[in-house]
Amino acid sequence: MTPEAQEGNIFTSSLDFLVNWGRKNSLWPFPYGTACCAIEFMSTETARYDLSRIGSEYVRFTPRQSDVLLVAGTITYKQAPILKRIYEQMAEPRWVIAMGACACSGGFYDCYCTVPGIDHIIPVDVYIGGCPPRPESFFDAMFDLQKKVEDESYMKQRAERLKEQIEDIKRKSKECREDLVLRKNEACEMVSNTVRSKVNDVLDVFPFKKGR
């Protein structure tokens, strides 16, 4: 736990502990497998290296229901916008594991079409080296990610998020007010212009009044 969370009162710190305990023991992965590292991930899912042991029970093939984006394999520049879009489709909180040399750094593909590391596109939490990494390394990465999830403070993030939202609302209301004032002035001007022109028209039609 972070020192900020420990300094907080009993309710928030224990709520942090509870939320993080729930989150770290149900990290459902979304396998974004494009190359041979995905085969190694399949072997991690099998009965021998049972990934369900640490709570990653289901592999969800939809970004809406998963917590961990697992990028396993070479990401080309053609693939990059798809990866970015899938990352953006995931609901927060979300974490990213880059698996294998290609996803982490491009590996030996030093060429025109390969992204030199997916951290150029999306933020990465844990990197796994190796070509491909063994299932044990993948387990190490999951334990590392669990530690990272444990260290996060839910209440602090929530407070930050609320602050951002309030600032956003304030800024927008200010903009709206300015806009309203501007429109009111415009409308007044328009009305007065119309009235003036009408009066002029009337005066044109009845010239006898002009002579007075």
Binding site: S105, D125, Y127, I128, G129, R134, E136, D140
Partner: peptide, 12 residues
Amino acid sequence: DTSYVFRKREDF
């Protein structure tokens, strides 16, 4: 030693 897991690229 087959496990290489870090949170930063520089650590590798």
